[in-house]
């Protein structure tokens, strides 16, 4: 089996699996404990608008997705405060509008968008060196922000109202947390695609949450678990010639069921 990793694309894919796992282990832990799974879904789908824009402007779609997902994250976070639109409604709107913008930009782009499918369902084997650099830098940014604001994120995840009482600006911290989710979406977009991202945010952290009551340990366990499971998914997809993103998600789901069965 080791000869698999003689291929350069396979080496890149494995590095990508590790980079993705760091991001979804750390940010996914917040997504799960703060219960913002569907919000993370909206941010990832909105990011597709950025991918379309990237095609249209001829820049790297992953880079173009960064401002798009951050703006959508912050607007969902703020909508409840500024308007009387509920967060749930905002999620529903942004989810499909982001996709629609992406599709329209791609329509407007002359020619055929060859790897469009990979942004929808992921394609870890086509990850380029540039993609890896972007993912690496974003992972560093994510870890730095989490390290600096870990106290604030914990307080706001646990009890927003009390955070306000002790003088913490809960809304700003919440928006920063959503921006973190947005950055993480960008890390994951090439590997699993906007449609399957939620599985990576949710499943490793949800499994790990059954085994620890400490947030830092939760992040570490979720990251390690994600590395093992995404690598396994990657190898299986190669052996059986299946779509990598979908295979990774199925491996995650199987792990979730097994762990639930053992624990339950």
């Amino acid at each position: 089996m080791l000869e698999l990793f003689q291929y350069q694309f396979m080496q890149r894919a494995l590095i990508a699996a590790v980079l993705v796992s760091i991001s979804c282990g750390v940010v996914g832990s917040y997504v799960v404990i703060k219960k913002i799974v569907s919000l993370s879904g909206a941010i990832s789908h909105a990011a597709f608008g950025g991918v379309g824009l990237g095609y249209f402007l001829g820049v790297n779609p992953v880079l173009a997705a960064i401002p798009f997902s951050i703006i959508s994250a912050i607007s969902i976070g703020g909508v409840k405060q500024i308007t009387n639109i509920s967060e749930d409604t905002a999620i529903g709107i942004l989810w499909s509008v982001g996709m629609a913008i992406g599709v329209i930009f791609i329509n407007l782009t002359p020619g055929y968008a060859p790897d469009l499918f990979s942004y929808l369902f992921g394609s870890i084997l086509t990850v380029s060196n540039t993609d890896l650099y972007i993912m690496f830098v974003l992972d560093l940014v994510i870890i730095a922000i989490v390290f600096l604001f870990r106290r604030e994120f914990l307080a706001v995840s646990f009890d927003e109202e009390f955070s306000n009482v002790v003088g913490l600006h809960a809304l700003l911290v919440y928006m920063l947390l959503l921006a973190l989710v947005a950055l993480s979406v960008v890390v994951l977009i090439k590997v699993v695609g906007v449609i399957l991202i939620r599985a990576l945010f949710t499943i490793p952290a949800a499994i790990s949450k059954q085994y620890t009551y400490n947030l830092r340990n939760l992040m570490i366990i979720a990251t390690i678990l994600a590395i093992i499971l995404t690598s396994l998914g990657l190898i299986l997809s190669f052996i059986f010639n299946l779509a990598s993103g979908a295979t990774i998600v199925m491996v995650l789901a199987a792990a979730f069921l097994i762990s639930y069965y053992i624990k339950g």
Partner: peptide, 29 residues
């Protein structure tokens, strides 16, 4: 402040000490 609602996530990964420590929050960073 002691809030009324105690409908937070009981499975939240936090212990008694950490919960009370939040009451001493001083400011960003």
């Amino acid at each position: 402040y002691l809030p009324q609602r105690l409908d937070f996530d009981h499975d939240f990964p936090i212990n008694v000490f950490e919960t009370v420590l939040m009451g001493r929050y001083h400011g960003l960073l």
